[in-house]
Design a protein around this nucleic acid. Sequence first.
DNA 1: AATGATCTTGACCGTTTGGTCAAGTGTTCA
DNA 2: TGAACACTTGACCAAACGGTCAAGATCATT
Lengths: 228, 228
Amino acid sequence: MSQKTTQKSAVRAENERTILKAAEAVFADHGFRGATTGMIAERAGIPKANLHYYFPTKEALYRRVVEHIFNIWLDAANSFDESDDPVEALTAYISKKMDISREHPMGSKVWANEILHRAPVIQDYLETTLRDWTASRASVIERWIAQGRIAPIDPNALLYMIWATTQHYADFNHQIDTLNGGRPLSEEQFAEAKKTVIQIVLAGIGAAPVALARDASAQAAGETEAAE
Amino acid sequence: MSQKTTQKSAVRAENERTILKAAEAVFADHGFRGATTGMIAERAGIPKANLHYYFPTKEALYRRVVEHIFNIWLDAANSFDESDDPVEALTAYISKKMDISREHPMGSKVWANEILHRAPVIQDYLETTLRDWTASRASVIERWIAQGRIAPIDPNALLYMIWATTQHYADFNHQIDTLNGGRPLSEEQFAEAKKTVIQIVLAGIGAAPVALARDASAQAAGETEAAE
DNA sequence: AATGATCTTGACCGTTTGGTCAAGTGTTCA
DNA sequence: TGAACACTTGACCAAACGGTCAAGATCATT
């Protein structure tokens, strides 16, 4: 009741969502060329012809998937600006990016695949939105350096290190799982990894103190007695 | 002259090398499914039927390419053990891995693609050679921690960070190039990136001192006067 | 009940792909 | 010279693929 064009759109919206979800998984598992519209349709539980009713071509469907990933990425990017303090800003940003890798591993894989193959579909995003964002955040990092709040390092290299490491937990999760005895990281293991990444980055740029195991002063961890 | 079975093998060896080189490039650019034997043959300058004379199936060819990459990886892995000192060992290892990313970007991409797609071809390597290597190096890192030579961090997370970051310069080089104005990193830029990666990792685990810009004491860099 | 619009689907088609094959060309060695 | 062997290649094939189509099902509106 009370729907006119809304009802039609509701069916469409629902079906598009189902298809996009299936497409993300299949594109992540098999890449663009490796994925077939038949596989995606099967996963979505609809005939292939129906899929082509909603998304005329495989490219159009893929583009929608990648755009969705990019929007999630942009959302995380904002958390970089939560504070002007390097410790707070980087902690928030890394934390958010790790969470995305944990919650949207398939999206990250699609993105990785796209870049790996020279970004045939989203080159324009790289040259506009991503380039602007990166340049502006690099200058923030430069300012922190000039203010003596962090060590003088190559800002881009720092950003790449953060991207690479956080996304590694999504893109290479199969390798990580295998090295973890074939099981996915537990919540505790993942939290520990996240903590380590943040710690290494912050200490690495001199934004946070480093605690050696023999240093009983800074942080009481409990493993201190292991030192011979 | 003086060749009997050598001559025949020489032709075979030469052709296999040519084909493998072409295959690495094509697999890196397009992934396993995206690559076609026709493309590889064309790139190698031979008819497709000739390629299938040397490599019966696309899978067999792919497996040979991946094995080649893995051997290069193993070579770098050895440099981890150059010294028992964390600074020396990690510097050598990171440096070597960065060099590989610079010199064999395509091999790295093939490997990334393989892991991304759940390692359908090289799962056995992950579960044997890679797992053993990782476990043994993790225990070396544990020992460094116990000895108080580095900060207490999750050893696996440290290794993943090194892998992710160094391989990022190969796997995501298209993105890096785009953010560098569409040009590949110069030798100087790459050297700077390498220096930054090593510095952040070493300082991040407390194995090397951190120099802030306002810290004129540790290392005289020249940018010190930028601090307000 | 009738109309028109949206949605569903099995059957189909042209193209591309991995791989085969048979007819060749060289090359070695007795 | 000629037989055995390794290599080369154009033509070909069955399977899989992205995409189309026409016929029907469903549903809001009149």
